[in-house]
Amino acid sequence: MKFRFQRKYLCIPYFLFLILFVIIPIFFIIYYAFTDSNGNFTFDAFVTFFTTTNKINVLVQSLLFSTLNTIVCLIIGYPISYLLSNPKFNKNYVLVLLFVMPMWINFVLRTGATRDVLTWLGINGGSHPYIATMIGLVYNYLPFVILPLYTTMLKLDKSQIEAAIDLGCNRVQVFTKSIFPQSVPGIISAAQMVFMPTMSSYVIPETLSEGKIVLFGNSIYLGFANNQWNSSGFMAIVMLVIIAISMLVTRNFTEKDEGKEAATW
């Protein structure tokens, strides 16, 4: 039988690639998480993780840092996105590009620069690790909040806002009853862009706190650096579970936002 070309066959290379380098590696992580160094089945990593206060501390600290970072980025970024979506302020898209531009400068270099400038100002990781790390995190993730919020704000229903004004809402009510509810999908996708990446970040806490603050990402990285595949594999699974939970929780809120970064180009 002769092979007959069909268009759908075009996706086979990509499909195989995904199976080989996305699906199978996840099974390897599961394998390593539940075996010991000799390859025997064990719950050691599981038990150690939940009984070592150190690891639980890292988990709680990471969750706190991620939450705080998400909130701070949203508080700073929300008004900016709102202003940028107003054509009065942003005539030809240049301001949006200015906010996004730092994303294209190597982030390790930027993190180093932030650390050096903070040290120059007297806020060094040695004496103020928490403040320095928070500044570094906000500084790095702010553009990721502004972009999805801005895209949502552009789609705000202006006539609904005007209707609210006509019907006698004051400014606060217009915001709480019309603008804010309409922007919730943007808030959710902005939070997604910040929360998980903060938890798994390595370079920023490592550099800005000079190694004093260990987030989940640092912890996994340490396991990797010391070839402790079993414990870092288990931590990766914890991470996967948290990701899955956050996906399930936010699922109902998000609209389809394919190519959310494509809007920039």
Binding site: F21, I29, S200, I220, A236, L240, I243
Partner: peptide
């Protein structure tokens, strides 16, 4: 999956494989 997955988890999974 790779879109929502944390980069570090993805990297580690490749490494262990």
């Amino acid at each position: 999956i790779p879109v929502v997955n944390a980069e570090i988890v993805m990297a580690l999974s490749l490494v262990v494989m």
